[in-house]
Structures are given as structure tokens and as C-alpha cells.
Design a protein around this nucleic acid. Structure first.
Lengths: 231, 231
DNA sequence: AATCTTACTGAACCGTGGTTCAGTAAGCGC
DNA sequence: GCGCTTACTGAACCACGGTTCAGTAAGATT
């Protein structure tokens, strides 16, 4: 049998675990199946990750980082911010693409009762914020977007036809602690929440048909948050 | 031991199951725990529901209907539609209140691989639609809301300052088949999706602090969809 | 009171699957 | 080649928990 370095094997196993969860669900996940997928013995999986629970936790983190790598690629292109944002939104929603999605339903439900997984998801979420906020900030810089700072208030923002663009210096927008920070971060949070809600709907109720219209909805939402559609 | 009618006992067991899932998660759910919660034997649970899987499926349906009963109460009040909508939004988001929520993370992840649960969730979702759409329709009738019918289109709805209110006769808005129907149904879908996304965020990342601001966000969103905040 | 239905129990059964452990051999340094 | 580290296996272990089944008694019906 071909021996591999510990780190290489670990990555293999994590990928196999993600695939397994993706196709059969966390509920039905067996370490034996993960091992079988690679032609290895179940003992080896436990040898590398001490317990099944740890394996799952590591798999969530791994899947999350994988997605973020691709997201950062999109966000780092040299296209205009508007285009990058649209591509991010489109790619975020579940499809037959590279992005794993069903795994996150399981991750959420696990996070409710597992402190470790919860903190993993929190970190991933903050990185997602950073990606979106970065693109938005770029767009504000080029004048493509206009964000008004009354966005976080309660209901009485009736008269804000056009808001003043806020220029935030990149180093003061630390994602570390609060979503309730500046308007850009708040916009990113709202968009991400809407994306998650739509994704759940898309996954739970089959219908690939609606994906296209959903993209329209998020685009509209982003436009209204980012001061487009009024100029 | 006090004997109860089958239907009464079934309801007891379902309620206990929901509580158990709510507090320990579906992952850790044991029929023995459900039984112990009521001082009964595990065999009885299986006696009433033939299998654990069926028990869980029934519990999801039961919890969903419970929530809907309360939602319909709110929606059926004689207050103005604006007020009812706000109360619905506020009550929908997870809190320490009556509404069960963590159970739905598990329900979603189960639905991905269980046809029965998926159809249960689909039905519940359609009923939720009906509740929201009903209130919105009332608001359109009284002139509180104004919905424009270009809402479902792609990105090019830039110039819609004020849309014409659409009067839909109540019997032609059947939730049965399509979310892609009229503007009212579409608005309900978008609001529900946003609510779900925010709820996940609230549950997975602890922070009860943000609930108040989230209510503000949904209100803003609803306002923009329903033609308020521009008049 | 007799009987019949049926809610209900206790104990045993048994498949499942994560984990352990002693042992094997592959690569690497000397 | 020798030996050390370490990836890796096979078989056995063992706990856990859903399900079964034979039996009991409570309540309704007559």
C-alpha cells in the first residue's frame, strides 16, 4: 500500500469526508464509508483524527476554507466591483458547481450543540464578511456604490433617498467583533443573510428553476443597500 | 399508570420529542429520553409511532403546525396590516419565546435526504406563504402597501420610483404551485428567505444582542418591497 | 361480573459502528 | 544492511440504542 505523508493523507480523508457528508448526509456518516471511499481501513481514519467528532469538525473547517479560497479569487479579480459582487452572489447560491452547500445545513445544526463547530463557523462567517466587505469597499472607492450610514437604525429611515458615500479606511473595519459596525459591514451581513435564506429554500425545495430569479432578488437587494437603482 | 387515549398520548409524545430535539439536538435524540421525559417506557413510543424515523417526521410536522397556529392568530387580528406584519416579523425571529427554532436546522438537514420530511417542510412553507401573503394583500387593499409587478424581473428595474398597487382577487393567489406568481407572493417569499437567513445567523452565533437590529433590517426590507419609505 | 379491546411495560435481543490494540511494513537516516 | 520512526491494517471489543415480544391491566361495552 502506498504510504503518504500524514498531512497529505489527512487532506485526502477530509475531502472524502466532505464528499460523503455531501452525498449521504451527516446523519448517515460512517467512518467506515469514508475509509472505503479511499480504499483504506477505518482504523487509519481514527489514527489521523482521534475521533469521529474531531473528523467532522475538521471537515467543516476544511470545506469552509475551500469555499473561501474560491471566493477570494473572485473577489480579487481586476474587474469592476459591481461585476465581482454579482459573480460572488451567483457563485454563493447552491448549484451543481464546486461549492459544497448541503454540508452547511448539517454544520449549522451541529453548531447549536457543539462549541467547537460553532466557533469554526463564526470564524468562517467573519472571513466571508471580509470578502464581501472588501468588494463593497472597493466599489465605494470607485464610486460604483454609495452607502449611507443610517442603515443600522430602526424603522424611521423613511426619507433617505440618497445617502452620502462613506469612506472607511481599510484598517478600521475589523471583522473581529461586531456586525453592528460601519454601514459597509452591515450591508455585507444583510446580503449574506439573504443569501443563506435563499439557499436553504433552494436546497430544501428542489426546484433548480428558481435559481435564476433568486439571483435577480439578491441583486435587487444589494442594489438597494448599495445605493444603486436610484441614480 | 394512567391510561390515555391514543391521540392524547401521541400528542404528549410529540411535544416531548420536540422539547428533546430543541434542547439536545436531533443528533443526540434517543427514544428512551423522550419516554423518560414523560415517565413512560421506550416501548410505548414505538408502540404509537412504529419507528424512530416516523416519530421525528411527525414531530417536525407537529412543531410546524403549532407555530402556524400562533402565526395565524397574529395575522388574523383586527389591527392594521402594517402592525400585524411587524408583529409577525418580530415573532418569527428566534427568541426565548414560544416559537421553536433550533428544531428547523435539524429539519432542513434531514429534508435533504428524506423525501417525507422534505414534503412536510414544503407544505409548511406554503402555509407560511399564505399567512404572509394574506397580510400583505390586506395592506394592499387598505392602501398601506403598494406592490409593483416588475418585482420578479432581472436587474433592470432601476427606474421604478413608485409602482402601481396591484389588486389581486384572493382566490387567484393559490400558493399551491409557484412562488414565481404574482408580486405579493414574491414579496412574501423574499421576506421569508431573509427571515430564515437572519435566524440562522442569530442561532449559530449566539448574540441575542443583535436581535433588535435585525428586526430593523427586516422591517426596512419589507418596507422597500411593499412600497413604503418612499411616500 | 365477564369479556374484549387496547394502552402499556420489562426484559431480552441484536445489528451497528466507533474505538482499541497488537502487529506489519514502508520509507528514511546512518 | 540495520534500525528507527511512523503510516497502516485486521480483528476483536464493547457500548449503545432501536426494536421485538410475550405478558399485564385499565377502561369501555355488554
Amino acid at each position: 500500500m502506498s504510504r503518504k505523508s500524514a498531512s497529505a493523507r489527512r487532506e485526502e480523508i477530509l475531502a472524502a469526508t466532505i464528499d460523503e457528508i455531501e452525498t449521504t448526509g451527516l446523519r448517515a456518516l460512517r467512518v467506515a464509508d469514508v475509509a472505503a471511499r479511499l480504499g483504506l481501513s477505518p482504523s487509519l481514519v481514527i489514527y489521523h483524527f482521534q475521533t469521529k467528532e474531531a473528523l467532522v469538525a475538521a471537515a467543516f473547517a476544511h470545506a469552509g476554507e475551500n469555499d473561501l479560497v474560491l471566493a477570494r479569487e473572485i473577489a480579487g479579480d481586476d474587474e469592476p466591483a459591481t461585476e465581482r459582487l454579482t459573480r460572488l452572489l451567483t457563485w454563493y447560491l447552491p448549484s451543481g458547481s464546486t461549492r459544497s452547500w448541503t454540508i452547511w445545513m448539517d454544520a449549522w445544526s451541529s453548531a447549536l450543540f457543539d462549541e467547537q463547530i460553532r466557533s469554526t463557523l463564526t470564524v468562517l462567517d467573519e472571513e466571508w464578511h471580509a470578502v464581501f466587505a472588501g468588494v463593497i469597499r472597493d466599489g465605494v472607492g470607485t464610486g460604483e456604490f454609495a452607502v449611507d450610514d443610517s442603515a443600522g437604525d430602526d424603522g424611521d429611515d423613511s426619507g433617505n433617498g440618497d445617502g452620502d458615500p462613506v469612506d472607511v479606511n481599510p484598517d478600521e473595519a475589523i471583522p473581529g467583533d461586531g456586525d453592528s459596525g460601519d454601514a459597509i459591514t452591515v450591508a455585507a451581513t444583510r446580503i449574506l443573510a439573504f443569501l443563506d435564506g435563499l439557499s436553504v429554500r433552494l436546497l430544501v425545495r428542489g426546484g433548480e428553476v428558481e435559481r435564476a430569479t433568486m439571483i435577480g432578488w439578491v441583486t435587487d437587494f444589494a442594489d438597494s443597500l448599495l445605493g444603486r437603482g436610484e441614480d
